[in-house]
Structures are given as C-alpha cells and as structure tokens.
C-alpha cells in the first residue's frame, strides 16, 4: 500500500511539474472554475429570494448541503475525474503504454492526469460550507463532527466510484464522455438540493441506484437534526461509509472487466 502511494505521489508530482510549464493556463483554469461554480450557488440564492424555505430547509441549511456535496464532488473531480480522458487515450493509442507497466492502470490514469487546477471548485464549496456552518450555530457534538468528516470522505468516494464506473463504460462507448458527464456533473447538481423536493422516482434513483443521496443528504439530516420527510429508517445517515465502500468495490470490479475488453487501436 505504501509503495502504491509512493508511485502515485511520483506520477502526480510529474503531472504537476508538467502543468507548471503552462502557468498562465493553470491560473486561469483555477480562477475560472472558482468563479463559475459560484454561479451555481447564485441560482440557489435566487430561489431563496422568492421563498424562505425549500422543502422545509432554510437557505443556510441548503447552503450546508451544497457546500458538503460540492467539497466531496470537487475532491473527486480533482483526484479521480481524469478517467474521463480514457476515451481520448484509447483513441490516441496512449492507453497501451499504461498497460505495459507494473502498476494498476486505474492508478496511472488518475495520477498521470492529476488536476490540482480543479482545486477552484473545492475551495468555493468549502467557503460556502464554512459560511453555512457559521450561520447555522450548530451544537458541535462528537457525533456531529464525526458525521461531517465521514460525510465528506464517503461523498468523495461515492462520486469517485461514479467517475470510475463511467470511465470503465467508455471502453465500450468511445463517445461516452457526454453521457458520463451528465451522470457525474448532473449527479452533483442533484445532491445540492434536499432530495425530498424531487419526485418519487427521482428520489429512489438518487437514494438506491446512484447512491448520491448518501453523499450529503442523509448525513445532513443527522447533522442538521432534520426529520426525514420520507420516513426512511433513522440509520440511513450512518450507511454512507458502507455505501461508499460498496460503490468503490463495484466500480473497481467494473474497471477490471472493462480492461479485459480493451481493444486497443490499429498498429
């Protein structure tokens, strides 16, 4: 495990050094993303200009949800979303060179395209989360602190699993990147609102199929001490880590199946 991490650190470091040769582009991407993600939140604020609560949640409660899911998504975006470049690698034939090395192909893909310039998103979401926490005046019990940490970690893993599964699907659908983005970026968007405002089928999809309701919504119910309007069992918030682990195991297995279906390119 330590050796795997060491290789990851080397490869990601190499990418960072390569990126820094194009400093202006790096800075502009970072700043651009930071600003653009704020527009997401402006949309929520506009809604609250008309109503005082959304599905029984106040602005700062929704902001908490937005911030938590944003940090989780941002981290997965920074560390794992690089799998979306798999179709390009396959088409250019550069995927082959990953498969001739004695290191997991998935590790190489995420390390070699490590994207610290995507930090902008994490930073923006963290600021919103911080403001929400300050305004909500929560009583910080050990349970709440633990649940918050757990929420961010599990959320990051759940989004990462979705990225990986999407990347694996691209071995069959070389033009799958757009479909994949609708699931990942779309999934992130859906987690920014309390899921009980959605219709029943969409709620079930988020809770039981994509698992994204476990990213922030269920843990937030516990942290914000909200009753579950859907009447689901009260242990739901505690399931997030389990959902995250299962999602990652499934995504990893899917990736391995996909690699065996890899067809490479001519010549």
């Amino acid at each position: 495990m330590g050796e795997v991490f060491a290789v990851y650190r080397r490869l990601a470091g190499a990418k960072l050094r390569g990126d820094l040769q194009y400093r202006a582009s790096f800075v502009m991407f970072f700043a651009g993303q930071f600003l653009i993600t704020f527009l997401d939140f402006v949309a929520i604020a506009v809604v609250f200009g008309r109503v005082t609560t959304l599905g029984g949640w106040s602005l700062y409660q929704v902001a908490f949800l937005y911030g938590a899911s944003g940090v989780a998504f941002g981290l997965s975006d920074m560390f794992v979303s690089q799998v979306e470049y798999v179709p390009q690698r396959i088409r250019l034939g550069t995927f082959d060179s990953l498969l001739i090395r004695p290191v997991s192909s998935l590790l190489q893909v995420v390390a070699e395209d490590f994207a610290p310039r995507r930090m902008g998103k994490v930073l923006q979401a963290a600021i919103i989360l911080g403001v929400a926490v300050a305004k909500l005046h929560l009583a910080w019990t050990v349970g709440r602190v633990a649940m918050t940490v757990c929420m961010v970690l599990s959320g990051t893993l759940i989004f990462s699993a979705i990225w990986i599964a999407g990347g694996a699907a691209c071995f069959w659908l070389l033009e799958g990147q757009e479909v994949m983005n609708s699931v990942t970026y779309g999934g992130n968007f859906m987690t920014q609102y309390p899921i009980h405002i959605y219709g029943a089928w969409l709620r079930r999809l988020l809770a039981f199929v994509t698992g994204t309701a476990f990213v922030a919504y269920f843990p937030a119910l516990y942290i914000l001490d909200k009753p579950d309007p859907l009447g689901l069992p009260s242990f739901m918030p505690f399931l997030s880590p389990a959902v995250a682990v299962v999602a990652c195991v499934l995504a990893g297995a899917f990736w391995r199946v996909a690699i065996r279906h890899y067809r490479s390119t001519g010549s």
């Binding site: 040769q21 250019l92 550069t94 060179s97 010549s267």
Partner: peptide
C-alpha cells in the same frame, strides 16, 4: 511502440 512514446511529454 515506435509510433508513440511512453515518455512524459512535458
């Protein structure tokens, strides 16, 4: 693979 490189481009 003569047609492509496995070296780090940048």
């Amino acid at each position: 693979f003569g047609q492509r490189t496995q070296l780090w481009w940048d």
